[in-house]
Every structure is written in structure tokens, then in C-alpha cells.
Design a protein around this nucleic acid. Structure first.
Lengths: 149, 149
DNA sequence: TAGCTGAGTTCGAAAAACGAACGCAAGGGA
DNA sequence: TCCCTTGCGTTCGTTTTTCGAACTCAGCTA
């Protein structure tokens, strides 16, 4: 009753936080952004139980983050899970996590399981927060929070 | 055994995702960024059970995201939970969630529980991903993923 | 016809979360 | 001194989630 209630609140931070804050969901999205698309592949790479995987995929389908796309495999029709536009728009969330992880959790120099590069110029990838007016980069201290009512 | 194993993996995306992907942790961080600092206030504003709140706060303390800071209240010494520098650096993650929520989950026009403004110019706040070399804004499709080994 | 495969579903056991009650230290009032 | 209050947890029995192994099912393939 209490955790689920955040999902129906009109807070544009609370609702996404409750959705992605469910166990496995962030790790599932990570796997999807790394290219995994099939049930069996999620199951084997993440060691998640099948029933929970089914549940999380269905929640993301319902929310419109994923869509099921048919494809042919050995002459048979199968379905794979792909990001919708809404889902692809979660990229900054994952990249913000990674940017933070690289700064604060990097186990050793260059001990990564994968690398990311800008296709056009080969540069690295970094998440940041900026002002929509003046374009300057912002930290928590540069931002004023105003409660409504 | 399986979910916890991500916490010890050398992936700079997987480890943060497992840490913040535990139930209540993202909502707890949201509350902290909104200014809540005391046990009782977390408990009453979030309707989280006291035992789980204790556990999540301790995990964030252990990870160095939060610190306990003594303060005086009615002549007595109390402790409050505050973000460390590591914790404040999670701001882009929360802002990325909010940027996404505003685009895809806004219930109605301007039906927010709070507003955010750049202190200096009054502008809005937006998370984005950019290239560390050429500075251009990136989407998932602009980025090449290269697995190691 | 039997076996295989991908994608789930089912179900009993284990783990996590819930929530009400309890503990405790220190200050204030009578 | 004794009792009440407050803030911050801890305990513990119950409910909810998760786990994991087994089962299902449809459609190839041998």
C-alpha cells in the first residue's frame, strides 16, 4: 500500500523513482541498453528468477518503456523486448549512474566490463545537469527547491 | 546470492544500479535531496517501515553516500543524515529521473509537488548526456558499446 | 513419433518488508 | 525524585516478494 502509492502520485520525480526503484528493474534496463533482448538471455546473464523477470518485463511493457517485437528464429515467430522511444529516453538515467559509478566506484583503473564511445568522434560519454536558460552546468547547490502549496 | 553479486562486480554501471535499485533507496534519496534529514521525518513522509528505513540508511552510510552529523535540539545532541560529496554527486541521477518524468509521466500541466530553479538566473533544470570530446548532446543511438574481452 | 527449444507458469520454501510494540537515553515539569 | 515526552532505533510475528526447480506448451527437427 505504501510503496505502490508513489506510483500514483503526481510527482515527476517520485513516480519514476518508484518505478525504477523496484528490485531488478535498473539492472534489467542496463542489460537492455547493452543489447539483450530475449527472455532467455536476460535470465541467463542476470541470474534473475524467471517469475520475477516475467513480472518486471510486464511492468515495463505496461508503462510503455518496452515493446514486444516479433522476429523469425529458425522458421518460427518469436518475440523480443525492445525499447520504445520512452524507454530510449531513459538513457540519461543510466548514463548518470555510470558517470557516478566511474567516479566513485571504479574498482581499479580501466577494469570495466564495457566501453562507451561517441560514434562520430570517439569521445567518452558523460551525464550532466544544466540550466535550460543560461546553459551552465548545475550541481545540487546551484538549484533552489520550491515546494508547492 | 544473485542480486547481491552485482554489488561486487567490477561494472561501473551494474554496481550503482544494484545499490540504487534496492527498493526504497531511490525514493529515500529523493527525500534527502528535497531536504529531509531526520529519521522521524523520513518515516512520516514516506510511510516506510522503520526497520527497512534503518537498513537503507545504514547501507547508504556504509557506502559513503550519507554521513551522520550531530546537532543540538532542545539542549540534546541528535544526529541527522546528510549527503557526503559522493552523495551530492548523485544529483544528476535524480535529475535525469525527473527530466524523464516530466516528459513522459507528467499527469497534468504544472501539477508538480515542487519546482526547481537555477539560483543565479531562475532557469529550469535538465539532465543530459554529452560527449567529453566534442561536447555534443548524445542519445543512446549516438553511442557505441564495446564489450571487453 | 519423439525430442528439442524458447518462453513462460506453477508452487513450496526462503528472504524481505510490514507494522505494532518495546527499549532507551536525556530533558522538563511536578 | 518520579513521571512524561521525544527522537531514534530494535524486536518479533505476520504478510508479501523472491527464489528455484519442475512443469507446460507450441512448433520445428530428426
Amino acid at each position: 500500500m505504501s510503496y505502490a502509492s508513489f506510483a500514483s502520485q503526481p510527482c515527476t520525480l517520485g513516480r519514476p523513482a518508484a518505478l525504477l526503484g523496484e528490485r531488478w528493474t535498473l539492472l534489467l534496463l542496463r542489460q537492455i541498453f547493452l543489447g539483450t533482448r530475449r527472455f532467455e538471455d536476460f535470465q541467463s546473464t542476470m541470474e534473475i528468477s524467471r517469475s520475477v523477470l516475467t513480472d518486471r518485463l510486464n511492468v515495463l511493457l505496461q508503462e510503455g518503456v518496452l515493446k514486444r517485437v516479433p522476429y523469425q528464429h529458425e522458421g518460427r515467430t518469436r518475440h523480443e523486448y525492445r525499447l520504445t522511444e520512452k524507454g530510449r529516453d531513459l538513457y540519461p538515467v543510466l548514463m548518470a549512474l555510470r558517470t557516478w559509478g566511474e567516479k566513485w566506484m571504479a574498482p581499479e583503473e580501466e577494469d570495466e566490463s564495457f566501453h562507451l564511445h561517441h560514434r562520430d568522434c570517439g569521445g567518452g560519454v558523460r551525464a550532466k545537469v544544466e540550466c535550460t536558460e543560461c546553459g551552465v552546468e548545475l550541481t545540487a547547490r546551484d538549484v533552489q527547491v520550491t515546494a508547492r502549496q
